[in-house]
Write a protein that binds this DNA or RNA. Structure first.
Lengths: 238, 238
DNA sequence: ACTGATTTGTGCGTATGTATC
DNA sequence: TGATACATACGCACAAATCAG
C-alpha cells in the first residue's frame, strides 16, 4: 500500500494540512484565496475546493462566503462530568492552565442564587469572580457563589491557594461533585469580551452549574462563560 | 412571614415579573425604557435599575447598553445524558415537539465521519438531515450519519416512522446510548439561520455526538446545531 | 444608502482514467 | 473487446456575501 498514488485534490489537502499543523499558516489567520491556491498548485478552483472541503471536515479550517477561509483555532477540551475541576481538567493536557482572581466579596444572595444554593433570600455568600487561562489564552470567566456560613474567610484562603478545590479542603471538604450543568449560547457582553480578550463580540458558552459536597449539600453555585471557539465541552458517558 | 413589607424595588421587580410571565410583555419584545418605567412607578431611575438587575438574574430579561431591555425567550430544556432522545425528551415537557425530515441519501462517508463510526474511509452511510420544532419554534437542525450496512432502507423507514428510535427498533435495535457529546458555540451559518428561522445571525450550540448500541458498537454519529437562546442543554448527574 | 471589486457558492458541460460486467 | 458506471479534473458562467470607498 505504501507509495500509493494520491489524487491531486488529496495531495493538495495533505500539503495544506501540513502547512497548518506545521505553523506556516497560523490559527486565526486567513488562508490564501482559492484563486491563489489554484495558481500555486496549478490546479482548477474546483479541485482546490474539493481539498478545502476536507480541511473543513477535519476541523482545520473554516470558510465564509465572500470573506475567505481561516485556520481554526484548535479548541481546548474541557471535560465535564461528576468530577469537573478546572485545575485537574486542563493540566491533564499539559496546557499550563491557571485561573486568576478578579474580584471577591461577601454579599447577600439574590433570590435566584439563594434558591439554587438552598439558602434563605439575602443570606450571606462569598462571591468570587475569576478568569481561566490556557496556553496564554483566556478561555473563561466565572462567577461563583459559596455560602458564607462555615467558610467565613474563604476569599482570603482562595487568594492564597489560588484554587477553590484547595480552599474547600482547608475547610474539611475532601471531595465534591457536579450536580447539574445547564448550557446555553449567546453573544458575549462587552465586559465578557474584555475579560476574554476577544477582538470582537463572539459567542460564549454559558454553563450554570451546582456543585455539592459528599453529603449532597449545595457547596458552590456558579456561572461560567467559555469563549465559544476556544473551548469544546466534552460530556463522556462511561 | 406573610404580608411582609416589600421594598419599592422588590414590588417593581415582582410586578414586572408578573407582566412578563402573564404575557403583557411577550418574549422577544422590548421592555419600556427605564425612563418610562420610572414614570409608571413614580420611582427614580436607579430604583428601576435595581429591579431590572434582578430580572436579569432571574433570566427574564436582557439589557444592552444603548439599546434597551428585551424579554428573554424562555429556553426549552433539553436533557442530555446516556439516554438522550429528542422525541422522549421534549414531549415530557408537553411541548408538542416534532422532528421534520429535510433531506436523506446514501452517501460515502468522509474520513472524519468514517473515523467516528469506526468504518473504513468512503464506506456507505445513511445521511439524514432534519430539524426539530417545539411549540411552533425551530429549535435545532441536525445532520446524522448511520452505517448503511444492516440498515439499507433506513431512510425510507425513517420517512414513514418519523423517528430514528423507531426506525432502529424496526432493525432490531431495542436500545441505544449516548457515548459522548462535544459542545461548542459559534455563529450560525446563513443556511442554519434559515432552517432555524432566525431573523439575524445568532449563536448556535453545536453538539457533536456518538450513539452506540447495546453491544457498544457505533450506531449513529451526528452534529446537532441548537438555537442558542431557545434551548438550554441540561446535564444532570445522578 | 449606493457602487464596484473581491471572494466564495453553485450549476452545467466536457474530457479522461479506472473498475466492473 | 465493448458497454457501462463512476470519480476526477478542467472550463465557463452567474449568484450571493463581503468589504472598501
Amino acid at each position: 500500500m505504501a507509495g500509493m498514488k494520491l489524487l491531486l485534490w488529496q495531495r493538495i489537502r495533505d500539503e495544506l494540512a501540513r502547512d497548518i499543523q506545521g505553523g506556516t499558516f497560523r490559527p486565526g489567520e486567513p488562508l490564501p484565496t482559492e484563486k491563489e491556491l489554484a495558481a500555486r498548485f496549478s490546479a482548477h478552483r474546483h479541485t482546490i475546493r474539493r481539498a478545502m472541503r476536507e480541511l473543513r471536515e477535519m476541523g482545520l479550517a473554516r470558510t465564509d462566503q465572500g470573506r475567505g477561509s481561516v485556520v481554526i483555532e484548535q479548541p481546548f477540551e474541557y471535560q465535564m462530568g461528576r468530577r469537573t475541576r478546572f485545575s485537574e481538567n486542563m493540566s491533564l493536557h499539559e496546557l499550563s492552565a491557571r485561573s486568576h482572581f478578579l474580584y471577591g466579596d461577601v454579599i447577600s444572595a439574590s433570590e435566584h442564587v439563594a434558591k439554587r444554593l438552598g439558602l434563605r433570600p439575602r443570606a450571606r455568600v462569598n462571591y468570587i469572580e475569576m478568569y481561566g487561562e490556557a496556553q496564554g489564552k483566556r478561555v473563561f470567566v466565572a462567577s461563583q457563589y459559596i455560602p458564607h456560613a462555615n467558610m467565613e474567610e474563604l476569599i482570603a484562603v482562595f487568594k492564597k491557594t489560588g484554587s477553590l478545590t484547595k480552599s474547600y479542603s482547608y475547610y474539611g471538604v475532601r471531595d465534591y461533585f457536579r450536580k447539574y450543568s445547564r448550557i446555553t449560547a449567546r453573544m458575549s457582553s462587552a465586559e465578557e469580551a474584555r475579560h476574554l480578550q476577544l477582538a470582537h463580540r463572539q459567542p460564549v458558552l454559558v454553563v450554570e452549574y451546582l456543585n455539592v459536597d459528599q453529603s449532597g449539600a449545595p457547596l458552590e453555585f456558579g456561572i461560567t462563560r467559555f469563549c465559544g471557539d476556544r473551548i469544546e465541552l466534552v460530556v463522556e458517558e462511561k
